[in-house]
Every structure is written in structure tokens, then in C-alpha cells.
Design a protein around this nucleic acid. Structure first.
Lengths: 250, 250
DNA sequence: CGCCCTATTGAATATAATCAACCGCCGTGG
DNA sequence: CCACGGCGGTTGATTATATTCAATAGGGCG
């Protein structure tokens, strides 16, 4: 992680294309409820280009990832950049920018990708279904839970369990799209993985070796094959470092 | 942390009291914008009682903490309970439950506290100002950012920096309420602190000693006096463990 | 007054960081 | 076409931060 991740051309690569009216994924937009025409035209972002960057003025939009994938990069207090999330195909970006003047993070395409913009400010919502706003509520709340899960894993697991959890998460998200749950390609570098998981790239390397030896998965370059998802799940659910339980406390 | 934190009486202690119409904090509810009558009557929760518990059916409400404080407790994959957040006086609870059937976490009062319920489901919103929903959007997005900050700290800082960050955060939140930024009482146990920061209680103890020696603060039982907030901030902004930067990547 | 729980302290251990070297791939350019 | 250079990734040896286990101390409450 002292070395750099994929280089980024600091250029927005927006190319207007087919309109989202025709988009096959449209029902997924804000849940099945939102069938209104709410999304703008598709925007193409090429690999390593950023959809928006930390400090950019916010455009009062969230983004729906239609194809491809992104990494979210934020700045730690001391200014060091870190990967704080990944957004795969039917997921959303910029849910954390509502009410801000400046983007709190960057979104960098991990491969050639497409997104749609969805405005969330008052004017844009006028005349549109209330359901849409409800959908946004649900989306935002879900995102809170996702972040909480991340924080949970960072608090009380070893690197081993974090990696297993991420792999399973990617697997599920692929499966939800109708792709194979056991074979897929990692869109991100080892360095990005490490940054997101809060460990060093060296540590990731060693973990991969360890996991391969245990026949948990196979991994060539960026192509994963989960050999024993059950074992991975058991690993995630295994014992944890920082102390034990918080007694009853619930 | 192998030992238990404050014991909890698993009983809801709801006592209807003064109506929120009269609440002095009301303008803070959903930002200054929401001056509507949106909140229900006050609910009193006594120390160590839980407002809601993991697995409870959700009541389609968020809660505004009017006085006192809460800890949020969630279950890690293996079932171990962990403190995933603290909610101080004019903050909100259950923002992560929208769209769920069951509460994903528990909220336990750290002292005798009061909350107001605010319904977020469709019927309850009827006839109420749209601003309110906008306010909720902003609130939810802000909560996402808060969680992201937590995850950020957990990823690439040592325990030392995490504790400093939390103390400064508590300080700010107190100051925002008009209380002293340098002298306040910690409502939570060392154990809760440790759980939230992702370290052991022993580690917290040692850190406290270390910080005292450095004249960063004074701490007796649960009473903190920040002696050198600037130094604390510098500490937070100091160098970090997991590797260095993510190159340009932004 | 004494018990229990929380907090603290100490010594040994472990997971992951750090530093450093090396390798293999890929695109560039001679 | 092949050599070069850069980058991403891997491996090794050492070190450090924080865990673990264990024992003790201090406060609050009955």
C-alpha cells in the first residue's frame, strides 16, 4: 500500500448515450416501486477515470451504476487516501453527499462502466412520485447498514475473516445479478483490496496463499473460483480477536 | 471485554410524558427546517434499559434523543455483541432500520434518558411537510458519512488515534449543545469504549495512562478534562499504520 | 462491612506492519 | 522483434502494537 493503486486520469469521461427509459435494469433503480422515469441518460466512464472527485461541487444527484464497477476513495484525517467501498453493477453512488456542498469522496471506475444520474434536489423531485422519495429513504438506510457491517468487520475480525467476508459479499452480489456465485473476476487491485480491508497489500498476498493452500478458493491474477464457500462462511463466523462478547447488553 | 459491560434490564421503560410540541429542542429535530409537529410524546428510558432490541419488530419510527445518551449494540457474524455507536442528546436512533422488519441493533440507555418517536412510514407522513422528508434524507446521508468516518478510523489508525478521535468527537458534540468542550462526563464504560473502538478494555486502560502522562487530558472515573485538545487533534492527524497513501487515486 | 463488578496492571504471545528484495507482466520504444 | 522500464504483486526477516491470560485494586451498593 505504500505503492500506488491503479493510475487515474483525472478527467471525466462523460459520453451521453442511450436513454435510461430503455434500460433493462430500470426496475432495480430504486426498488421495484420506482418505475417512473427518474433517471437521466447513461453516462460512460472509462476505466480509471473518476465519476466525481473529493472536493468537487456536488451536483445534487445520486448515481446508479448500470454496468461495471467503482471504488470509493476517501481521505483519512491526515489526508491519506483510502478505499472506503466498492460499488458493483446495480448499486448506487454518492448516497453520502446529500446536503453537502462538496463531494466527501471520489468514485473511480475499476473498469469501463456506465451510470445514470438521478437528481435528489427539491425541484427535480417536483411532480414525481412520492414512492421515489420513499425508495430513496430505504436506499439510504440500507447504505447505513452496509457501512455498519463494514465497521463491524473492521472492529473485531482478523484480516483472514475480512477477506473471506468480502469475497462472499462479492459472490452474493454477482449471484444477485444472475452471474455465477463461484467464479468471477475481481475488478480491483490487491492494493485496493488491502486499503478497503484495512491491512497492507503484503498481508493480502500472504492471505491469498494461505487460503489457496486450504483449498478455500483458487485465484489466478484476478479470476476467483470459490471452492468451498461453506468453509469461507464458517471462517467469517469463527472466533474473533478484540475480546469476547458484550455480555447481555442487548 | 471478556467481562460484561453495564447490565441491562431487558424491559422497555416507556412512560408517556410531556408532549414534544413544547420541546425546547424541537427546532433541532430534523434541522431548522422542520418546525412541524412531527414528533410524538416524550418517552423516558431509564439507565440500562433498552429503547429497542435487536430482533424486535420495527415500529416504523426513528427516535430523537432529547436528553441522555445511548449505545448502539449490534451482533457480529458469529453472534458476538459489539457497540457500534453512541447517540448523544440531540441525535437520532434507528436510522438504519428503514425498510426492515426487525431491528438490526439494540439501543441501550447509558443514563436516564428521554426520546421522541418520529414515524417515517407513508401514512404518518401524509399531510406533513415535504421538507420533513427532505430533512430525513439529509439526516440519513449524514449518518452514512458518520459511519464511513468510523470505518475510516478503524481501518488505518492505531488505538491511540481512535481514542483521541472519539474524545474530540464527544467534546464537539457537547460544545454543540452549549456545554463545556473541555470538561464532560463519559456516559459509557471502558468496556463500551473498547468495543466501539475495536480494541480490548485493557488497551483502553493503558492508553488512558499514556495520555494522562502526556498531559493530554485528565480522567477520573468518568470525568474527562481535555488539557490539550490541539495536541489531541495533531495526534489524530498523525501518521497511520496500514501502509501509506493510495497514490493519486482520487 | 463485605461482596461484586469495573477497572487497572503485568508478562508473554501473536497478528500484522515494516522494510527490502525480487519477480512477472505489459506496454513502450528502439 | 526484442530490450527496457514501470507497475503490481509476491516473498522473506524483523519489529511493533495490541491481545491474551492472570492477578490485583478500587468503588459502589446492598
Amino acid at each position: 500500500m505504500n505503492d500506488s493503486p491503479s493510475p487515474v486520469r483525472n478527467v471525466r469521461q462523460h459520453t451521453e448515450q442511450s436513454n435510461c427509459e430503455l434500460c433493462v435494469h430500470r426496475p432495480l433503480c430504486l426498488g421495484a416501486a420506482a418505475t417512473e422515469r427518474i433517471a437521466g441518460p447513461r453516462i460512460r466512464i472509462e476505466r480509471n477515470a473518476s465519476l466525481f472527485q473529493l472536493g468537487d461541487p456536488v451536483d445534487h444527484c445520486i448515481y446508479s451504476v448500470r454496468s461495471g464497477s467503482f471504488k470509493i476513495v476517501s481521505a483519512a484525517p491526515h489526508g491519506v487516501l483510502q478505499v472506503t467501498g466498492f460499488a458493483l453493477a446495480p448499486e448506487f453512488l454518492a448516497l453520502n453527499a446529500l446536503g453537502l456542498e462538496r463531494q466527501p469522496c471520489s468514485a473511480v471506475a475499476l473498469e469501463d462502466s456506465e451510470v445514470c444520474r438521478i437528481s435528489w434536489d427539491r425541484q427535480a423531485f417536483k411532480g414525481r412520485r412520492q414512492l421515489l422519495r420513499s425508495g430513496l429513504h430505504l436506499l439510504l438506510s440500507k447504505e447505513i447498514r452496509r457501512e455498519q457491517h463494514t465497521a463491524l468487520m473492521l472492529r473485531n475480525t482478523h484480516a483472514e475473516q475480512r477477506l473471506a467476508d468480502l469475497l462472499l459479499s462479492l459472490s452474493q452480489r454477482h449471484a444477485a445479478n444472475g452471474y455465477s456465485a463461484t467464479r468471477f473476476r475481481l475488478p480491483m487491485s490487491r492494493c485496493d483490496l488491502a486499503s478497503f480491508l484495512g491491512v497492507t497489500a503484503e498481508c493480502i498476498s500472504r492471505l491469498i496463499v494461505k487460503f489457496k493452500r486450504r483449498q478455500l478458493f483458487d485465484l489466478d491474477r484476478r479470476d476467483v473460483t470459490l471452492l468451498d464457500p461453506t468453509a469461507l462462511q464458517q471462517l467469517v463466523a469463527g472466533q474473533t480477536p478484540p475480546g469476547g462478547a458484550l455480555a447481555q447488553a442487548a
